[in-house]
């Protein structure tokens, strides 16, 4: 597979480490009343999408960027690649 890195252009997926669903960005608030339930869902339950899925890839043998890649799990087609940090900020993770 080839991932079109937003800063570096097309790179072989073998340079990356895969983590999983980009929902892992949405780490719950530890002080929430139902933090235990939220963390269980965050840590263990997955949509396991069959189709376009947003997922986290880490350019370990590259510039160390974490990327959010939109990839179809049925065809492996990649339609979008973003810096995870930008996605995280857009999802309101700024301190």
């Amino acid at each position: 597979m080839i991932i079109n890195h937003p800063l570096l252009g097309p790179r072989d997926a073998a340079e990356f480490i895969y983590l999983g669903d980009a929902a892992l960005i949405d780490r719950p608030d530890w002080q929430a009343e139902d933090a235990a339930e939220q963390f269980h869902a965050y840590g263990y339950l997955r949509d396991n999408v069959a189709g376009p899925m947003q997922e986290l890839w880490y350019h370990e043998q590259g510039d160390r960027s974490w990327l959010v890649v939109t990839r179809d799990t049925l065809t492996h087609e990649i339609t979008n690649v973003e810096l995870a940090r930008d996605v995280a900020r857009n999802r309101g993770r700024s301190v």
């Binding site: 999983g20 669903d21 869902a41 339950l45 997955r46 949509d47 396991n48 999408v49 069959a50 799990t73």
Partner: peptide
């Protein structure tokens, strides 16, 4: 196919394919 079938029952599973 667990994820896809379980989704028909509205379930999320601790499983990835």
């Amino acid at each position: 196919s667990s994820g896809r079938v379980a989704a028909m029952a509205g379930m999320r599973l601790p499983i990835e394919s």
